[in-house]
Amino acid sequence: VGMTGYVLAINNIGPAYTAAISAFFPAYGAALATVVLKERMRPYQWAGLAACLAAVAVLGWTPVDGVPGSWAMGIAGALVCVLGWGTEAVVIDWGLRNASVDDECAMQIRQTTSALTYALVILPLLGGWPSAVAVLTSSAMPVIALAALSGTASYLFYYKAIAALGASRAMALNITYSAWAIPFSLLLLGSMPDVRGVVCAIVIILGAITAATDVKALFGHGEKAAA
């Protein structure tokens, strides 16, 4: 549901507005986690999350004169994306509290459900199977498969982070992908970042680390270890 809303938003309002709006899914997820999971974040953690999200929005914000489709449909899609991605992390965190489910099993269930939903519902509804078959037989398939493997590894570690840190902190760290894209683009594509990109990347990473770190628990653990 979240990814479908994301693609719908891009198709209607473009990637810039979509990236800026969808970047706020950790804020919604953190608020939901405080209600459903009783997670508590300290004021400095909320401040770190706010700084991180603001930098993500600035990094993805490149205003355009017009939009390719319906503004209302695009905003609705972006909000569906926020609800889907934020709710996913909270539901996974809740499920992982059952001792009989670990993060690998949770991800397998998630990915299988997602694949079946796309194959049996979304692609037939949108008439997308011909395009999917064309991609499978194209020369780009090895690169796409490599990207898919990278995405699978990313999701596996994301779910491990949810299990270890909780939904709120894991989402804050997960959103740093927008910052890490900058050095990878430089190394792999030779794209030189501008000053805005470098500053936003630093703010995103530092803000996410602040949001994910419980200073009291961290120093308390260190004191126990020293003792």
Rank of each mutant, 00 (worst) to 15 (best):
L126D: 02
L120H: 00
V90L: 11
L120S: 04
L149N: 06
A19Q: 10
V35M: 13
N174D: 14
A54V: 13
E88P: 02
L218E: 10
M73Y: 06
C52F: 04
I21L: 12
V82A: 10
A19H: 00
A72Q: 09
L123C: 02
I109M: 13
Y158R: 06
L123K: 01
M41D: 08
L123D: 04
V199F: 05
L206P: 01
A172L: 08
A211H: 04
A23R: 07
V67N: 04
D103C: 10
V195P: 01
S154T: 10
K160V: 10
W129S: 02
A50T: 08
M141L: 15
R196Y: 02
L79K: 07
Q108I: 03
A27R: 00
G220R: 05
D103Q: 12
I202L: 15
K216H: 14
A201M: 10
V64R: 15
L173E: 04
G66A: 14
A106P: 05
S191G: 01
L186Y: 13
G29I: 07
A89P: 04
I162F: 03
I175C: 09
R97E: 14
P26W: 05
S70A: 05
I205W: 04
L8D: 04
L125Q: 05
V90D: 12
P183Q: 05
Y158V: 03
V198C: 14
Y177D: 09
G84Y: 08
L37I: 00
C81T: 06
K224S: 13
P63H: 01
A23C: 12
A30D: 04
Y28R: 00
A212W: 06
I122P: 00
S154L: 12
M192K: 05
E39T: 01
A179L: 11
S70L: 10
Y6L: 15
C105L: 13
L187M: 14
A47C: 08
I13C: 07
I10M: 15
K38A: 14
D194M: 08
M171P: 09
M171K: 01
N11Y: 10
T34E: 11
Y17L: 15
S100I: 01
Y155P: 00
A170W: 03
T137W: 07
G127D: 09
Y155I: 07
N98W: 07
E223P: 03
T62R: 15
V135H: 04
L218K: 03
G84H: 09
A19F: 02
A19C: 07
Y28S: 02
W85V: 04
L206K: 01
I75M: 13
D93R: 02
I182V: 14
A167M: 03
G207R: 05
T113C: 15
A147L: 14
E88W: 07
W129F: 09
L156C: 03
I122E: 07
I162W: 08
G190Y: 06
S114M: 11
L149V: 15
M73F: 09
G95Q: 10
S139I: 04
L79R: 06
V101S: 09
M3T: 06
H221Q: 11
V58K: 05
H221G: 08
L206E: 02
V67C: 05
L149S: 09
A16N: 11
M192Y: 09
R40G: 09
A172G: 13
A132L: 15
T87G: 11
A106C: 10
A115N: 01
S114V: 09
L146A: 15
A164T: 09
D103L: 02
R42F: 12
D65L: 12
A164Y: 03
I182N: 04
H221T: 12
S138T: 01
L79V: 14
A226V: 12
M73R: 07
I205C: 13
